[in-house]
């Protein structure tokens, strides 16, 4: 039982309520959520896995600035790649793409990397957890709020599944609706954990 608890990594969004800003403010479509979630989780995985390997070569006082610089570098590259993938999709994300550099999930991986802490498999689980939560929240907001799902397909016209012509519950696509969906999912997540006999650390 104790070993099971040690290995448990809660979802950073639904369990830790981390990295919420882009998910409740900008991710009102599935495509937006997938792009933001992928950016944050990729940055976290690359930084978390790469930093410990180079840690010894960087003087201690310079580790934090170098790691932050790398985070900003990765976020900038991801933003440019996303813009090339679909200019129209990324036009709506605005500042949230460069802000991936200071996403809580990225910063947590960065901090552990600077300290040289062992990250596997927690890094992979929390990064993938963030991506899945981003996809789930944005998909629910778009499907229930706007009655459609925009898929992150390349090119100027992303493929969209339209369920109904009129938005059934537009509030959910707004930031307030993002909090409603997030709160409901976080409650369901905690309920499920309790039913499984687990606790949030």
């Amino acid at each position: 039982m104790e070993a099971r608890r040690d290995a448990f990594v809660p979802d950073p969004v639904l369990g830790g309520l981390l990295g919420l800003c882009p998910l409740v403010a900008a991710a009102d479509t599935l495509a937006d959520g997938a792009i933001l979630g992928l950016g944050a989780s990729l940055s976290a995985i690359i930084l978390g896995a790469g930093l410990p390997a180079f840690r010894e070569f960087i003087p201690e006082r310079l580790r934090a600035p170098v790691a932050l610089g790398l985070g900003a570098f990765l976020a900038a590259l991801f933003g440019l790649a996303a813009e090339a993938f679909s200019p129209a999709l990324t036009a709506g994300l605005g500042l949230y793409l460069p802000l991936i550099a200071v996403n809580c999930v990225t910063l947590a991986a960065l901090r552990r990397g600077i300290r040289g802490e062992e990250q596997k498999p927690g890094l992979l689980r929390s990064s993938l957890g963030y991506l899945l939560a981003a996809i789930l929240i944005s998909a629910l907001r778009e499907a229930i709020g706007l009655g459609r799902l925009t898929l992150p397909t390349p090119g100027p016209f992303p493929y969209t599944l339209v369920f109904v012509d009129e938005a059934p519950f537009r509030l959910l696509a707004a930031p307030a609706g993002g909090f409603l969906i997030l709160g409901s999912l976080a409650a369901a997540y905690r309920f499920a954990l309790r039913a499984l006999g687990r606790r949030l650390p």
Partner: peptide, 28 residues
């Protein structure tokens, strides 16, 4: 939703022509 539109204006600032060249999340 949002779209990217190519817009052509006259020198007096009047819109002369427009065309959708990409869509954000509308899909409509």
């Amino acid at each position: 939703g949002s779209v990217l539109a190519a817009l052509v204006f006259t020198g007096k600032g009047d819109l002369e022509a427009a065309r959708i060249v990409g869509e954000g999340a509308s899909g409509l």
